[in-house]
């Protein structure tokens, strides 16, 4: 016997699915397809002639050392942002879960950064850390540290990592807090009676039970760092100094728009798409297995 409810008629389900499918088609598959197509083309500087060159754009891309350097920069940038935004958010969430008294105010304050647009966040941090005028830089300099993100690549990297992390903490915090509140209180109490210190309780009970949330956030954060941090980098460092903070997505933009190499930048965006799809697939396939539900 059929246990599910089966609706006959084909029209209604298609109609109900149509808006979503249409949006996906127009705003994802169409541009993605166009990018793939464009990555096989070479255009002259004035856009007058276009030539189909097969994989030449890719060949050029992978033969250049600076592309690998950008990949390395992206890897460093994304691991730092993902690590710091996840761990700091978790720390905040654990604290918010404890002190219920001021929790509402605390939570509201923590959620605000999420409402700030990436470009604005970038400018905000740029101002604060601007070497000669920035409020924070002045105190850093006063402390005797030669802070200059405009000249020093490591300083610039630190700046964008801080800005991107700060932006993402709110989002991660919300999910971690919800995850923490979903853990039955009696389980924690049982562990306390079982003689586990608060630290041990966290690592042996709370952290494993949070792993579905952590896993979900890891995927979301990686995608965030790969794409959505564009605004921050553009506003704060523009990929500089000397391309020290140029991530893959920023290179797509600078090569395509400023460099005028549409074919090469299309090839880059295809590569970027493949990397993100692959990373997500790997995460689901291997990390999810170890996740405790």
């Amino acid at each position: 016997m059929e246990k599910r409810v089966v609706f006959h008629g084909k029209l209604l389900p298609f109609l109900l699915l149509a808006p979503q499918l249409l949006v996906t088609l127009i705003f994802f598959y169409l541009p993605a397809g166009q990018a793939v197509w464009q990555s096989f083309l070479v255009q002259d500087a004035f856009g007058l002639s276009t030539e189909f060159v097969w994989f030449e754009n890719y060949q050029i891309l992978f033969s250049k050392a600076d592309y690998y350097r950008t990949m390395l920069t992206t890897a460093i940038f994304s691991s730092l942002v993902a690590f710091f935004s996840l761990s700091i958010a978790l720390l905040f969430a654990v604290q918010a879960d404890k002190h219920i008294k001021f929790a509402t105010g605390y939570k509201t304050l923590l959620i605000w950064p999420y409402a700030v647009a990436p470009a604005i966040a970038g400018v905000l941090w740029l101002f604060m850390f601007q070497p000669s005028l920035g409020l924070v830089s002045q105190s850093i300099r006063a402390a005797g540290f030669e802070w200059n993100p405009l000249l020093n690549q490591n300083h610039a990297m630190a700046l964008v990592v801080m800005a991107a992390t700060w932006k993402q903490i709110s989002y991660n915090f919300l999910f971690f807090l919800a995850g923490l509140q979903a853990i039955p209180k009696s389980v924690i109490e049982a562990a306390a009676i079982d003689g586990a210190t608060p630290m041990r309780r966290f690592w042996t009970i709370i952290f494993p039970l949070l792993s579905p949330t952590t896993f979900f956030l890891l995927v979301v954060n990686i995608v965030y760092v790969f794409f959505d941090t564009f605004g921050i980098i553009d506003a704060a460092t523009q990929g500089g100094p000397a391309k020290g903070t140029e991530t893959l997505v920023y290179k797509v933009f600078s090569d395509g728009k400023s460099g005028g190499d549409l074919g090469g930048s299309a090839a880059q965006s295809v590569v970027l798409m493949v990397i993100v799809i692959a990373l997500t697939a790997i995460q689901f396939r291997y990390v999810e297995r170890k996740v405790q539900y």
């Binding site: 009696s186 389980v187 109490e189 049982a190 562990a191 009676i193 039970l209 405790q292």
Partner: peptide, 10 residues
């Protein structure tokens, strides 16, 4: 202690 909802570590 034995809890009402058992409170086993899942």
């Amino acid at each position: 202690m034995v809890f009402q909802n058992y409170a086993l570590y899942p």
